[in-house]
Write a protein that binds this DNA or RNA. Sequence first.
DNA 1: AATAAATACCTCGTTATTTGATGTATTTTA
DNA 2: TAAAATACATCAAATAACGAGGTATTTATT
Lengths: 116, 116
Amino acid sequence: MYSKELLKGTLEVIVLKLLSEHGKMYGYELSQKVKEETDGKIHLKDGSLYPALHKMTKDGLLTFEEVNIGKRVRKYYKLTGEGEKQKETLMDEMKDFLQTIEKVIFKDFNMLPGLC
Amino acid sequence: MYSKELLKGTLEVIVLKLLSEHGKMYGYELSQKVKEETDGKIHLKDGSLYPALHKMTKDGLLTFEEVNIGKRVRKYYKLTGEGEKQKETLMDEMKDFLQTIEKVIFKDFNMLPGLC
DNA sequence: AATAAATACCTCGTTATTTGATGTATTTTA
DNA sequence: TAAAATACATCAAATAACGAGGTATTTATT
């Protein structure tokens, strides 16, 4: 696991990206997906994820619908138009950020060839 | 400039890397160097940098010597042995982190393959 | 059948880093 | 000579993620 400070600012863009990719997902599914895709290196924890989903909904980036699964209720989230725009913005920012960090810290490596 | 959250957790590793590279540097010099190397995209601000240098010194990662330049005093910082070790640790962590973020957010990026 | 583990949501006080504001003082440039 | 750059410093405020705690259902294990 990474120091939590490093993760700051990554939660929102990760959620937006995954929802953009998969159409609709519920909270628990998002956390499982991220854990799976990062080999357990990134955890979207309950205490971070649910408040973030609520905030993003309040900010107009997401909407949700409740679906009954037996006696449980799942909240499926999806992007709004604004959420889609924000996804683009944050991904551009993230890409630029990764490249800048790579340059200043790893200038003698080429660790992120996919971002060229 | 990046959303300030993204920069969290990057300050320490940046300082350690630059000091490792240049032997000894003073605060103002560090901030100028980072600004220069990132085309102004990353600012180590006074309010962040000086407290961080003090903390890292307290933590045994840095030592400093004061040098008189006319009537001014510059504090030249350099890495301790522990600081060198911490540099390695944080660089490894950062590299892993960047690659993980790239994987989860930019996995389908293969635009401009000829420019790599 | 009983129990543990996994699923699925939630809240809220604590924590830690960065920032912005503010300050002092010297040296260089216009 | 005034402005800009150099060079250090402190501290209250902001804020995002976390940990701890909670409720409840479903599935797997013993």
